[in-house]
Design a protein around this nucleic acid. Structure first.
Length: 137
DNA sequence: GCCAACGTTGGC
DNA sequence: GCCAACGTTGGC
């Protein structure tokens, strides 16, 4: 199983909305690298839910429940989306500042490619971030 | 195929 | 509100 981090501006779509909806189609990705990452996701993969712009912190964990299929919000049919289910909130949200301050996380894709909205997270980084956030499982 | 102009993302 | 990074567009 692989790990990921997905970003959303809370003004557009927030973690609380994800929890309310339970299962949410992750649409609107219009970047080729991000699309490649979406297409590589498998059912059961987990992802951190990160609030960009406002908050700038990991606020929850989601799980892939449906693998890549054509994004219904893309008129040209060239883009894909996946379905995500809310698993639970981060007991202690991990801020971008905290991640940047940790030398073990210096090569996080989130930090190195700040504009990419869907990024992979290594097993080691996943474990490290879970410890920082007080996430057990 | 190169590159300037422009738009978008997202941190600060 | 500003700006850096980076993707896209379009003229040549």
């Amino acid at each position: 199983m692989a790990y990921w981090l997905i970003k959303s501006e809370p003004d557009a779509f927030s973690w609380s909305e994800q929890v309310e909806n339970d299962i949410e189609p992750w649409t609107g990705v219009r970047n080729h690298q991000a699309k490649k990452n979406l297409a590589a996701m498998k059912v059961g993969d987990r992802a951190f839910f990160y609030h960009s712009n406002v908050g700038r912190e990991i606020v929850g964990v989601v799980e892939v429940v449906r693998e890549a299929y054509p994004d219904p919000t893309a008129t040209d049919g060239r883009w894909v989306c996946v379905d995500m289910r809310a698993i639970g909130p981060m007991p202690h949200p991990v801020t971008l500042a905290a991640m940047k301050a940790d030398p073990d996380l210096a090569d996080l894709a989130l930090i190195r490619q700040s504009r990419l909205s869907v990024v992979p997270v290594s097993d080691a980084h996943w474990g490290h971030l879970c410890r920082m956030g007080g996430w057990n499982s």
